[in-house]
Write a protein that binds this DNA or RNA. Structure first.
Lengths: 150, 150
DNA sequence: ATACACCCTGGACTAAGGTCCAAGGTCAAG
DNA sequence: CTTGACCTTGGACCTTAGTCCAGGGTGTAT
């Protein structure tokens, strides 16, 4: 095992800054392909496993679940999944990202306004970040589809 | 209880599209202030409770924990927390949002490229989304701070 | 050849964020 | 004045995403 193009699980864990167990967990969850093994059973990761793990961690911090992340990683043309299907899914993912971008931008604006109007008069009893997000409270009661029915 | 400026827990749940239990849970977690009660113990929510709950749900989908969300909602000038402190925290939150925005934008670009290059030649054995994010795999082994040490 | 760091598996445990249930009280319509 | 929808609490339970052993094998530097 003195092949430098191959990483032990410990090396991947250090470089990706996650605990070992997380890598084995991701393997079980199908986020990380099961790597080849040495004769003694040690996992031999390719160098790009680190990139993959970092991607997973970043995506998680952006509000994606492991299941969604697995889908993103699986996004490729295969005999079963044609090019059109891949394109469709990629565009759907972009749409979801655009929603997140819009909401984050909205929130950013509210925080910027909050920081700016901090010096100055405040309406008491109003939560500043909500007030900054939407100065007019919704005034249309009960015309919403019922959800709480169980 | 025929005061239309006040909502029952069920009405808030329907309008915010969350289960009842979630509202009580948020109250216990301090995300939703405990509302006044009728003499018989029913919660009487102000109309803007719906806005607050929706904000919580949106922020969660953007990768914020309930604890972080509670901090955002608490961001206001009080006798204990001066204006400067509020401004500082708001700016810190903006910085975190900017990181998320940059990463989402990066990911969006990768997906757009994936969708575009779908028709055309593919390097086999490379995960398209990772390839699109960073065409050059990292080649600097072991010079990373050790983390896995426990 | 022995220490010491590293790796293996399986299974138990945890924390966050809900979700469900039982037993009982309340309110409005018929 | 009953029926059905709605509300109360406390506590048990669930899912997701890890995290932590115990018991055992491996690799290599001294």
């Amino acid at each position: 095992m003195t092949d430098t193009s191959v990483l032990t699980i410990g090396a991947v864990a250090r470089q990706a800054r996650v605990p070992l167990d997380t890598l084995r967990y991701y393997e079980r969850r199908g986020l990380l392909p099961a790597p080849p093994r040495t004769t003694s059973g040690y996992r031999q990761y390719p160098a790009d496993a680190v990139r993959r793990v970092r991607f997973i961690k970043r995506a998680q911090a952006l509000g994606f679940t492991l299941e969604e992340i697995a889908e993103l990683l699986a996004l490729r043309v295969t005999p079963e999944v044609g090019c059109d299907a891949v394109e469709r899914r990629a565009l759907a993912a972009i749409a979801r990202i655009d929603t997140k971008l819009a909401e984050l931008t909205h929130m950013r604006g509210a925080l910027a306004q909050l920081a700016a109007t901090c010096h100055g008069p405040h309406l008491p009893d109003e939560c500043p970040i909500l007030a900054a997000l939407d100065p007019s409270p919704p005034e249309n009661p009960e015309d919403h589809a019922d959800f709480a029915a169980r």
